[in-house]
Simulated scan of single mutants.
Amino acid sequence: MDEELTVLKSIYLDDLIINNDQETSISITIYSNGDENDFDPDKRLLFITLIAELPSTYPDIDSPKITLCRSRGLTDQQLDELNSLISSCLELNSGSCVLYECIELIRSKLSLYELPHEACAICLTLINNRNDIIKTNCHHFYHKNCLASYVQIKKNELEEKYQEAIKCKFAMEKDFRNDIEDPVCRQILSSTVIEQLPSSTIETINNKEENRELIKKLSPNIRQWQERTHALFQQQKEKGGIINLDKTQEIIFS
């Protein structure tokens, strides 16, 4: 066992934590591969922590007890699959050193999963393109364009509040115009996250393209519903059932 731990430490360096308090145990946080040449673990989209408790009779008699915990971006179904794979790996390698196999098995599966299997909390649709995704400093995932639109709206709101506070001569401890909260947890978004967002011009173009794609994907039932509601709107408008606010104001002020 000691020889195996020495080899693992030489491979994973500081990522591998060895605990010798009572029974020996190890822990390592395993990340998905992320973008090519991206060595910053915090930029990886998926991760999970593997904890292995090693009995004194390992590896000759007993297998280690492995627990997967503290995951990010994984569904319950994916976690069940990982646990099942670990169980199979332990069973197939009974009586031999198995820690490296378990760690690399998890790493390979995370790379296959690739993207966090969760919806953007702003538009409520799944994120299916790595280039479209952004992870905030509080570990939430959004489409870049969705978060960019949200940030711009919040910036405008904060600017209005700031100018109103100045106008009313309210005492302010600091300039709060850049204190934009995460849509989910309300933690302040870091400037690093905001700097990664697309400009408003790019955002507008992309949004138009996304809307066109969304329209193409609409089911026939939704298209029929749109046509019926549009026809009903025109019918009500022709019969005077729709109030034209502009004409009403002209009559009032004339």
Score class of each variant (00 low, 15 high):
115 L>E: 09
108 S>H: 06
98 V>T: 15
94 S>C: 10
105 L>A: 13
121 A>K: 04
119 A>E: 11
93 N>L: 14
106 I>D: 06
113 Y>R: 07
87 S>M: 05
94 S>P: 00
80 D>N: 13
118 E>C: 15
118 E>F: 01
100 Y>R: 07
104 E>F: 08
82 L>W: 05
118 E>T: 11
103 I>W: 08
95 G>F: 03
85 L>I: 11
121 A>L: 08
92 L>Q: 14
121 A>N: 01
113 Y>L: 10
108 S>W: 12
117 H>P: 00
85 L>T: 05
105 L>W: 06
82 L>A: 10
119 A>R: 06
88 S>E: 15
83 N>K: 15
108 S>C: 07
91 E>K: 14
110 L>C: 05
87 S>F: 08
104 E>R: 15
80 D>A: 15
102 C>H: 02
92 L>W: 01
123 C>L: 02
123 C>M: 01
100 Y>P: 05
106 I>M: 07
111 S>F: 01
84 S>M: 11
98 V>E: 04
116 P>Y: 00
120 C>K: 06
120 C>W: 02
100 Y>K: 09
119 A>G: 03
121 A>F: 02
82 L>K: 06
102 C>R: 00
105 L>E: 07
89 C>A: 10
106 I>G: 06
85 L>C: 04
106 I>H: 00
110 L>N: 03
112 L>F: 14
102 C>M: 11
90 L>K: 13
92 L>E: 15
116 P>Q: 01
106 I>V: 15
100 Y>S: 05
83 N>L: 09
100 Y>G: 00
87 S>A: 15
120 C>H: 01
82 L>D: 08
82 L>C: 09
112 L>G: 02
99 L>N: 04
98 V>C: 13
121 A>W: 06
101 E>P: 01
107 R>F: 07
119 A>L: 04
97 C>E: 12
110 L>D: 10
